[in-house]
Each structure stands twice: as structure tokens, then as C-alpha cells.
Design a protein around this nucleic acid. Sequence first.
DNA 1: GCTGGCGTTCACGTCGGCGTCAAGGTCTAG
DNA 2: CTAGACCTTGACGCCGACGTGAACGCCAGC
Lengths: 135, 135
Amino acid sequence: MRIGELAERAGVSTRALRHYEELGLLPARRAANGYRAYGAEDLRAVAEIRTLVGLGLSLEETRPFVECLRAGHPTGGSCASSIAVYRQKLAEVDASLARLGAVRAELETQLQEALRERAPEPRCGLTPVFTPEGT
Amino acid sequence: MRIGELAERAGVSTRALRHYEELGLLPARRAANGYRAYGAEDLRAVAEIRTLVGLGLSLEETRPFVECLRAGHPTGGSCASSIAVYRQKLAEVDASLARLGAVRAELETQLQEALRERAPEPRCGLTPVFTPEGT
DNA sequence: GCTGGCGTTCACGTCGGCGTCAAGGTCTAG
DNA sequence: CTAGACCTTGACGCCGACGTGAACGCCAGC
């Protein structure tokens, strides 16, 4: 399989594949004419990369997984280094969630405060009034 | 107040202040010698910017707030355009929270699955064993 | 006058993950 | 033979928010 086919089957650009190769994530055999030659295991590797990137890992962070696959393990997550990355990422995501939750609360507070300032005399008991600025 | 003092009092770099000026966020008066001259309202503006950036807004998104301040309003959030940004940001944060929650769940799943693969024969009933790879 | 600490503008570097040319080589079908 | 569809390497562009350095001006104190 050449780079175009792999790209299409993996749903990525050829540029991306070359980029992965530059990073050493996806070393390619070469045909006699210099064209990159890929196999099914490479499709597997690219799929693993895209899945993990989709979960928020950087390309560098996918390296243990890809190397794990290349080492013959059934899944990229079977190795200790991959599991360490999972744990670390999980911790990072938890931290992000906590921070984002706090940010959300603060945004909500600020918004309500701003709304109070702009509506100093709310007419209670009336149905909500259409306010063009609120769009 | 010159740029160095404002930078120190606001807790940002002079480069950042010049960057804000480039963006038109922080126009500065000039002294006779060409030095930028700032007042208390500029300190206020920079504080507003930093607070909002801390909440995840881009510099561009702080523009309505800064202009609101400059227009003489008591707070940067008093204007309709600022409130719109608040609402939009809140929606974005909610989306991020939802997505990040899903990602967290998926990471957790993958981690557990990976752990199961690596420990096919758990010795039940024993106290947890120290596993150096799990660090 | 000279040093040192401020200020000025200009402009390139950084980080990640590629996009997008440019200039060419390779192979296949007509 | 030639078009055109693939491939190659090399290298610059992009986004945001500045960092960093060069080369220079301004001003206070000694």
C-alpha cells in the first residue's frame, strides 16, 4: 500500500502521514522506486494515533502506544509506558475538568452580575420581556 | 505612569502591554519624549484583560469589555456586547465540559481495559501487590 | 561626559500539527 | 509520446500570545 491509499483508508492527509514519519512515529519501508510502502500494521498504527489524538493526547504522547503495537502487542495500551500515559492524561483531564468547572461558575457569576447591573429595576411578576440586546 | 511601572503593577511584561497596544486594546498617550504614558484607567483595563484571559477568553474576546470600560461604564461586563461574549463563552465552556467528560470516561475505560489485559489472572483475596510498573 | 537604567521600534523565534506551494521523479493508459 | 495521476524532498505559512534580541534614544546621577 502506498501513502495515498493509507491516507484515504485512515482518513488522514498524506502530509500528516509524512509528518508522523518525521517524528519517527510511522517509519516506512521503501519500494524500489523510493515510494513509501505500508502494510496493515501501519493502518493499525495510524488508527491508534488518531484515536488517541482524538482523546486529547499529543503526537508525542501517542509514541508509547505506537511502539507497543510495533513490539507485537495486541493493543497499543498493553505496555507499562502506555498505561503511565493513560494515568497521566486522566489526571490532566481531571485537572482540566476541575478548572473548567470553576471557570464555568465564575463566568456564570460574572454574567449574572453584569445582567443585574444592566437591569436595576426588574419588573417582577411579568412575563419575560423580549430584549434585543440579549441575543 | 510609564510602561515599566504599569507592567509591574499589573503583573505582566512590557512586551505584553505593547502587544495589547498593537491589537488596539490598550492605546497609550505619549509623553513629549515619545514614552508611553498610562493612567489608573489603563491599570484597570489591563486587570480586566488578565482576569478574562484567565477565564479562557482570547485577547480579541476581551475587546468588548475593554471598550466598555473605556466608554465609562463601571465594569467591563456592563455592555451588551460583553454579555454576549459571556454567554458565548459559557456555551463553549459547557461544550468543553461535556466533551472532556466523555473523554475522561473513555480514557478510564481504555485504562481499565489495558490493565485487564496486563493482569489476566488476578489473585483474588490477596492484599494488593506492589507493582513497580504501575507507578 | 559617561554610565546605567529606563524607554523606543523592528523583526524574527517559539510551540503543534499539519497546509500548501514548488520543482521535480515515476508509472500507467491511450 | 504524452498526459495525468501518483509519488518524492524541501521549505515556508498559519494560529495566538507573546519572548527575545538588536540597535538605538532619553534622562538622572556622578
